[in-house]
Design a binder for these strands. Sequence first.
DNA 1: ATTTATGTTATATTATCTGTATAACAAAAG
DNA 2: CTTTTGTTATACAGATAATATAACATAAAT
Lengths: 126, 126
Amino acid sequence: MLIEIDFNSDEAIYVQLQNQIIMGIAMDVIREGDPLPSVRQLAERVGINMHTVNKAYTILKQEGFIRLDRRKGAVIAIDVDKARALMEMKERLRILLAKGSCKNISKEEVHALVDEIYDEYGKGRM
Amino acid sequence: MLIEIDFNSDEAIYVQLQNQIIMGIAMDVIREGDPLPSVRQLAERVGINMHTVNKAYTILKQEGFIRLDRRKGAVIAIDVDKARALMEMKERLRILLAKGSCKNISKEEVHALVDEIYDEYGKGRM
DNA sequence: ATTTATGTTATATTATCTGTATAACAAAAG
DNA sequence: CTTTTGTTATACAGATAATATAACATAAAT
């Protein structure tokens, strides 16, 4: 899986890592059970420090996206706590949609955006 | 308008200020033309530094939510750049929905969340 | 005119976060 | 026994967040 870092971004490197891996899972580029590069491998490949990768992996583990095995390294392992995921999403949506609502973005336009984005994901997960 | 800061939050104070003001506009608690407290007033009322409020106001101005007048202070003034707002929302939605998709949240469930949130907003803006 | 209040700008300081740099450890695999 | 894994610890530099004073021009109020 290709991972690229924008060093000029205002977003932290470890957050960019998290997002790209989550996007990779959503887009079905990587699947349950697939191995991720080790912290040292990924760090060297991308050209960043080991601890930055480790930070991203640790949070991804805590949020239930991967499993960290001392022998096998990092492996995609989704822990589906749907109630929790729904709550977190609603919390974030509140702020995001408020911004849009102020700019006259209608409910229907948001629905259209959601549909467009879901179409970008693998057709397996609907 | 009531503004409360959670000093134990991991979110920066000036971001909390921005979000609460934006939520206030979306919920129709404050409307176009309404004045906001001056940076010094709000700072003292909430118990934070003047510059923290000024930072929030400056970004809100830059993002087109308020207008800063040297005589009148801060005033709600929405600059509707819808195309830009739609792009920014889509960018953020991509990551947010990817997280949800990994947790098996369906497109329909997102739609339901969006509807719930839009119902929280003032019935004037639909 | 004087005072007051406004946003604005500047500087300095402290604390926290980010990212890097080494180093070492226990556990498992080859 | 060597290598690789995640894990932990420490130290350091840089950026960001928040505070603390201070000053300035402008406009309103007295």
